[in-house]
Write a protein that binds this DNA or RNA. Structure first.
Lengths: 306, 306
DNA sequence: CTGAAAGCGCTAACAT
DNA sequence: ATGTTAGCGCTTTCAG
């Protein structure tokens, strides 16, 4: 009852294994009599033949596998996990829709091993929230030529595309919504990419003491308790939902980086984005993989706030 | 600059390709002089050798790949997507932690193709929310012997383990929380597995008109508008968060099937579970894969409410 | 029009 | 103690 292989079909059909391969792959420029074609196809799906993609990959040097690799944090907040779970979910559906198989893998923050790229001969890779430093020590030892897109990271490397939310614009919009003149503070997620954190803090126009880079939920309560008079700008819907437990919705303004605006509590302000980060990243990946000519010139691709 | 193979290392070290394989895999019962071992190891990581797992799988008949296959719905609500995104996220981390590589794939509800199991020779498979019917028509044509665990589905098939939340217990607990005597209604997600939906409705002890099987968010507002006096029991944290936009938190009781209780609005009731569905399912999978003796007898595994 | 054969990169039984 | 060899399942060139 084991899985039939090309050989089994060939034997059953009384033809060579090559012929079967030609028929089942509809290899062009191979002229095979319709009668034989039919017989082989019949036998194939009668036997329930399913090709072994590992074997195929080995010879074709293409695996049809795309990796989504996520740099975790030592202690990840639930909201951060959900944000990336949702991103992965959106990307997976786009990629699966195009016939790719998607490998999702968490990277140990202490020692991010990118071996999986070479081991599995991934056709394309998304890297989420990478530390600038570990990126450099590692980028040297990994297979050049693999389409690689970095997400949620400001990385000074001319080789790779970087897809990020335009948080500068989003923060401006948020400030406008809550009113420039009122006291406000910012709640954001911790992340590996230091540059990104720095950039956000800078563009918020706030003092460091009015910014909470959240690592554990209980810090939130403390932080907000002493800021009852403030409007609270929150980056991320899930963090927003958690924050809503400690602040009035009307004092909240959520920047919807996860493309899940429906999760934002009623009454809270909302800054959303014109495009979807997952779609943008996937589209870019498809272009990279088919070596499309119309690639964006700038390696920094921004998803803009609206 | 292409990736080095065993052959390259063998050539560089002046030994046979088999010897290299022995050394790099620390194959037991092979006595190789320490000097040779060292030399080979040196050359290997100097060249940056990384094994090709496709080739290895081909001969070992083990791929180290685990699949998580999700049956989608025609029009999936955001809350359902998040629930499964979160489940997948938790499972991925457990599986990756054990050294497996995880393939996540969405199944077209109209024509769920399970070919990926055979194509990629998956070592284990999780199937989420399967329609009883499509399961049978399909289970026949798929590789028997692959450890398969079905999640969130009541399926009458003695072959496979089924991991489900004990919603009967959870609903009882929820009813107790809101008070048996007050008017209440139930909001739940639509799903593929008809049996599961039926079982929930039955155990809720409510009339069908007091149950909303949500497919689109705007049905929610309508449903709740005419039930201002009711306590609302909601299955799922994310659905709960969305529901909180149309009902007072104090009227809500959320059954936390996604193991994300923190997302539940403040002031709402909460029914949570003693164990985590992702952990339970993964643990079971590990046992199945190592042919452990101590497998549960009952093919239905329940995660109990507390 | 069809098939033999080489080879993708690796493992494991079998010789030496 | 190490090497030879036969595959794993598939694609593809090149003869027939």
């Amino acid at each position: 009852m084991k899985k039939p292989t090309l050989k089994d079909i060939a034997k059953a059909a009384g033809v060579s294994i090559a012929t079967v391969s030609y028929v089942l792959n509809k290899t062009p420029n191979q002229t095979i009599p319709a009668e034989t074609v039919c017989r082989i196809q019949d036998i194939a799906n009668q036997l329930g033949y399913i090709p072994n993609l590992a074997a195929r990959s080995l010879v074709k040097q293409k695996t049809g596998l795309i990796g989504i690799l996520i740099n975790r944090l030592e202690h990840e907040s639930l909201s951060r996990q959900l944000t990336y779970a949702s991103l992965v979910n959106q990307m997976e559906q786009e990629l699966t829709g195009q016939g790719y198989h998607v490998i999702v893998s968490s990277l140990d923050p202490a020692a991010p091993k990118l071996d999986i790229i070479a081991e599995r001969k991934l056709d394309g890779v998304f890297l989420i929230d990478v530390k600038q430093m570990s990126f450099h020590t590692i980028s040297s030892r990994f297979p050049s030529g693999v389409p690689l897109i970095v997400i949620d990271s400001l990385i000074d490397d001319p080789l790779f595309y970087k897809v990020n939310a335009d948080l500068e614009g989003a923060l401006r919009e948020a400030a406008a919504q809550v009113g420039e003149e009122v006291a406000r503070c910012l709640v954001m997620e911790a992340c590996n990419n230091v540059e990104l954190g720095r950039s956000i803090r800078r563009h918020s126009g706030l003092q460091d003491r009015d910014i909470l880079v959240m690592q554990q939920e209980r810090e939130l309560e403390l932080f907000l308790r002493s800021r009852k008079q403030h409007k609270v700008i929150v980056i991320g819907e899930f963090l927003g939902a958690v924050t809503a437990k400690y602040a009035a919705a009307s004092d909240l303004c959520v920047i919807a980086v996860a493309d899940c605006p429906q999760i934002v509590p009623a009454g809270a302000g909302l800054v959303s984005f014109a495009q979807n980060k997952a779609s943008v990243a996937c589209r870019l990946m498809f272009q990279l993989m088919e070596q499309s000519a119309e690639l964006p010139e700038d390696k920094y691709v921004w998803v803009h706030a609206e």
